[in-house]
Design a protein around this nucleic acid. Structure first.
Length: 481
RNA sequence: GGCGCGUUAGUCUAGUUGGUUUAAGACGCUGCCCUCUCAAGGCAGAGAUCACGGGUUCGAAUCCCGUACGCGCUACCA
């Protein structure tokens, strides 16, 4: 049987790194096995769900290149793929369990339940539904109905331990359900998560449930439901949580946590995918930098780590820089344009000449880049009209040696047609011979006068990009103050 | 509180069935090389009594028990 897996986010927020990693593992598994990857949405909590989040999640998955074969916007024979559109299906199954006496109506109100919960907690006991509505008499039911109470439907939890067979954790044994009979259909007629979830997995013929460890504790309840419905159990694989650097739950305090934020900052999808894959999984050959294809080939549910993964933003950023340096300059140039436009460095149509020039700019600064949002800062020197020189810079320019070097530079620039990659070296060599200054004495004043900074890309890259006119302009501007 | 999961250098992990492991790789860190500078790149190095305490065994990071710590579930949230 061909594997069928799904990613089932709830649209209550943006796609975060944890969800993305779950989606990725499902995707890798499906692609590797020739299975089907399904995108379904769990929006039974109408209060917290929002359409814009659904759209955002879809957009982020697409950005990461995690395409799905079936589900939202892709269609398929098992639809609809939004839980809010499957409510009748859940009700049908709930009534079936009711008829088979595996479930029952519960007329307890939310307030009563809450009251009893608090009471138990106060006494130091485990809050537990006592099953008082399991055997209501006709009279009691009529009375509740007359009071217009809307009942929930509760599942009769069979006693006994439940063993979850998990692909990453092995056999996990759970002691008898301490919480008692749980709700499968709320009083508003909407299925509860544990119910909707397994009805979907069952009816969509999901073969492997790959999800976060936070669902491990839910699994015994779900298994009981599968059994009550006489359904075949899928294989489970619970992957560990992703924590922040201080080993606590990943939150805003740890910096960016949503894929959208990383996308905005200019993290490449291949870097994100590669890094996410390493969260809990390790390549057999130990080589960490892997293409999507390599990941697909080597991925295995069997060697997923059981311990929580800690999200290391620094390593992700390093990896992104690595990918920026490895991809084509043309791609970086194209990706850079929006950032340059936003910084006010670019406007209007980009002519072929401008495009070529931009390519050289990107070539000059690419080694400094860890993510694309750093582009305006790194390219400033090529676009700025006004050079700001630091105190230290001024001091260096006041030196006699600096004055001589800059004078010679200006002279020689005027005599050549244009400054190019080829004539840059001879030009500097000439100044060196003329003034007797070399190394730092020669290059540092040149750098400061032209860029205002004492660090940056190599001068043999900068000068030809700026061009003779701009270099002279910057040099003469110095004279006036 | 109850139930479950986890714990190898600052971080991600390798080390699957106990024996050439003097515990390996990557990020980060330090130094050197390259170089006008920074970055990138190359090379080298520091950094782990394998959470702690017992036990099983000729032998344990690897198996068992306990403790501590972290995380999750414990809802008419998903």
């Amino acid at each position: 049987m061909r594997p069928r897996v799904r990613f089932a986010p709830s649209p209550t927020g943006y796609l975060h790194v944890g969800g993305a990693r779950t989606a990725l593992f499902n995707w890798l598994f499906a692609r590797q096995t020739g299975g089907t990857f399904i995108l379904r949405i769990e929006d039974t909590d109408r209060k917290r769900s929002a359409d814009r989040y659904e759209k955002a999640i879809i957009e982020d998955l697409r950005y990461l290149g995690l395409d799905w074969d079936e589900g939202l916007e892709a269609g398929g024979e098992y639809g609809p793929y939004r839980q809010s559109q499957r409510l009748n299906l859940y009700r049908g199954y709930a009534y079936r369990l009711l008829k088979e006496k595996r479930a029952y109506y519960c007329y307890c109100t939310e307030e009563d339940l809450e009251e009893r919960r608090r009471e138990a907690l106060r006494k130091g006991q485990t809050p537990r539904y006592d099953g008082r509505c399991r055997n209501l008499t006709k009279e009691q039911i009529e009375r509740y109905e007359r009071q217009r109470r809307r009942p929930t439907i509760r599942f009769k939890v069979p006693r006994g331990r439940v063993v979850v067979s998990d692909l990453v954790r092995g056999e996990v044994t759970f002691e008898p359900e301490p919480q008692g009979d749980f709700i499968i259909l709320r009083s508003d007629g909407v299925a509860a998560f544990n119910f909707a979830n397994i009805i979907d997995d069952m009816s969509m013929e999901i073969t492997h449930v790959i999800r976060g460890e936070d669902h491990l504790s839910n699994t015994p309840r779900q298994i009981l439901l599968y059994q009550a419905l006489g359904a075949r159990l899928p294989q489970f694989a619970h992957i560990s949580m992703i924590l922040g650097k201080n080993r606590t739950r990943l939150s805003k305090r740890h910096g960016a946590t949503s894929i959208a934020e990383y996308r905005r900052k200019g993290y490449l999808p291949e870097a994100l995918v590669n890094y996410l894959a390493l969260l809990g999984w390790y390549p057999p050959d130990g080589r960490e930098v892997k293409s999507r294809e390599e990941l697909t080939e080597e991925f295995s549910l069997g060697n997923i780590s059981k311990s929580p993964a800690i999200f290391d933003d620094e390593k992700l950023t390093w990896m992104n820089g690595h990918y920026i340096r490895s991809t084509s300059l043309e791609r970086i140039r194209d990706l850079a344009i929006p950032y340059l436009v936003e910084a006010g460095y670019l406007r209007g149509r980009i002519t072929p000449a401008k495009g070529k020039w931009l390519l050289r700019v990107m070539g000059a600064i690419r080694a400094h880049l860890n993510y694309l949002a750093q582009i305006p800062e790194e390219t400033e020197v090529f676009f700025t009209k006004e050079i700001k020189i630091s105190k230290r810079g001024e001091r260096i320019l006041k030196r006699d040696s600096s004055k001589k070097v800059l004078l010679a530079l200006k002279d020689r620039l005027k005599k050549i047609k244009e400054i190019t990659d080829r004539n840059f070296k001879p030009l500097m060599k000439g100044i060196e011979e003329e003034t007797g200054y070399k190394g730092e004495d020669l290059y540092l004043p040149t750098r400061i006068a032209l860029t205002g900074k004492d660090k940056g890309p190599e001068l043999h890259l900068i000068l030809p990009i700026l061009g003779k006119r701009e270099c002279l302009r910057r040099l003469s501007e110095r004279r006036e103050d």
